Every structure is written in structure tokens, then in C-alpha cells.
Simulated assay, not measured.
Amino acid sequence: MTTPDVITPSQLIAKHSEDLSSVLPSHVHAPVWIRVAQGAVRRDPKLMKAATETPASLMVALLNAARLGLEPGTEEFYLTPRKVKGKMEVLGITGYQGIVEMMYRAGAVSSVVAECVYDSDGFDYQPGRDELPMHRIDWDSNDRGELRLVYAYARLRSGATSKVIVLNRAEINKIKASSMGSDGDYSPWRTNEAAMWLKSAVRQLRKWVPTSAEFRDQLRVDAQGIARVQAEVAAGRPRAVVLNTETGEIEDSDLDAIDAEIVDPADPWLTGERTDDPEADQ
């Protein structure tokens, strides 16, 4: 009796390359993305083991990465092995660089700043008084101490500055506690803690900055949505807005945007006055 050949994770990815390619955004070169995914699995024995034991979990993670247009197995999108009921599985986790990439891709952001603050750093920021944080680092120090704070903000193409996000260790610990797989041996919360602090900050920042190219396209054609945003700004009540990708409608978020900034509806990229590639100026 012959034993059926076991398909490797790399072969599985190749077999379903068309399915993965079909959900990739148009700007992503599918063959390169597929090779990146195969290389990520091949170079990590623990990830290879998890993908072999539970191939379905690998495909779910890769489909999520493809849908977001992020490179799997990088700091854009982690492929993390974890043990569930005695069996290894693959968990896909969007990294902070992936969130930042989606912000840039939307075209409304000219730069994103995200930094960790350590015990020996100087840090001063008071909302309403300061536009931006003052972060002082002793670059000659051999040890900056423990992680203390993390902050993030964005410069918008309109010239405005987004809401400044500042999180302390207690807030980070709450986020970590609610994060799936954060206590796993291979979780980036253990292997790359600073990166996860940065992700927590930029994830909060994402609420105030568009992260979808469709947002820009929708603002161009949805005059009613633009008028609503302009009215909010004129009334001194800037709000966060989101695009419902299922309905195609711009909706107010349920966030309290007391001192937030939003994309200026008069931004030439949003109004259609400029149609060139917004990435070209970077």
C-alpha cells in the first residue's frame, strides 16, 4: 500500500496562488508576493511545522495578508506559530509597518511618526498646549531603560497634523491582554515587544487617518460626504469618518473626536484637482 504524498506548505501556496492573487490589490505584483510568502514559511522551522500541521490556518492568514496587500512574514504582516489544544497553528498579525503602509497608500498622509519612549528619555506633551510631543533621547546611552510610553501622529498632505496618540504601559497592557495569542511563546509581544507597542499606537492613530485608497476615491465622488465633513469642520467639531466598504458610504465613526484632525476635504488629491500619483512627492 502506497502512502499518499504529503503536500508541503510551499506547494500549498503555489497550488492556491490564483486564489491568493485574486484578492491582492492591483498595485501588488502577485508572483513576487507569492514568492515572499513561500520564503517566509521555508526560513522558519517553527512556522513550517505549524503550517504543515494545520494548513488551513496558513491559508487563512495568507488570505488576510493578501486582502490587505501586505507582505506576509515581514513586519508588515507577521506569520506567527502558536499552539491551540496541543496542535500548532498559524496566526496572521498585522504589524505596525503594515498599518503605516495602508496610511500612505490612502494618499492623504505625507509622513507618519511613531516612537517608543524609554525610562531615560525626556518626554513632554500636553494636549491643547503643544502641537507635537517633545522627545529628547540620549543617543550616547548604552541603555535607555524600560519601555515607558509610545506615541504616534501623522502629517497630512493638507498641512494639518493628526491627533497625537500617547499610550502608557498600563494602556499597552490592556491592549496586550485583549490580543489573541499575545501570551504564546512565539508571539511578537514576546519576540519584538517594541514593535507591538508601536503597532498599538499606530492602530489607535488609524482611527483618525484614512487607511484605504477607496476612502480617497469615495471622497472624490461623494459630494454629500464632503459637504458633511466640511460642515463638521466649520462648526469646530472635527470628527473621524470611515468608509463602509460594504455599502460604499462614508459614515461618522463612534469615536469622540474632541481634539482630532481629519483629512481636509479641500485637499487637491481628494477633490480631484490633482490626479497624479500622490506617492510621487515622497
Rank of each mutant, 00 (worst) to 15 (best):
D121I: 03
G122E: 08
G122T: 09
G122F: 09
G122W: 07
F123P: 10
Y125P: 06
Y125D: 07
P127F: 13
R129M: 12
R129F: 14
E131G: 14
E131Y: 11
L132A: 03
L132S: 04
P133G: 03
M134Y: 12
H135G: 02
D138Y: 07
D138M: 05
W139M: 12
W139N: 10
D140N: 14
D140Y: 12
D140I: 07
D140A: 14
S141Y: 06
S141R: 08
N142V: 09
D143A: 03
G145L: 00
G145S: 05
L147G: 05
L147S: 05
R148Q: 13
L149T: 04
L149D: 01
L149A: 01
V150P: 10
Y151I: 06
A152S: 14
A152V: 11
A152E: 09
Y153W: 09
Y153R: 03
A154N: 02
A154D: 05
A154Q: 02
R155T: 13
L156C: 05
L156F: 12
L156Y: 11
L156P: 00
S158P: 07
S158G: 15
G159N: 08
G159Y: 09
T161F: 15
T161S: 11
T161L: 12
K163S: 13
V164F: 01
V164P: 04
I165N: 08
L167M: 15
A170S: 14
A170Q: 14
E171N: 11
I172C: 09
N173L: 14
K174E: 15
K174F: 11
I175M: 05
I175R: 08
K176L: 05
S178R: 11
S178Q: 11
S179M: 02
S179Y: 07
M180D: 06
G181S: 03
S182L: 06
S182D: 02
D183C: 03
G184S: 15
D185Q: 13
D185W: 09
Y186L: 00
Y186Q: 05
Y186D: 03
S187L: 00
P188Y: 06
P188R: 01
R190C: 01
T191N: 09
T191A: 07
N192K: 10
N192A: 14
E193R: 11
A194W: 02
W197Q: 05
L198H: 07
L198F: 03
S200A: 15
S200V: 02
S200N: 07
S200K: 04
S200R: 03
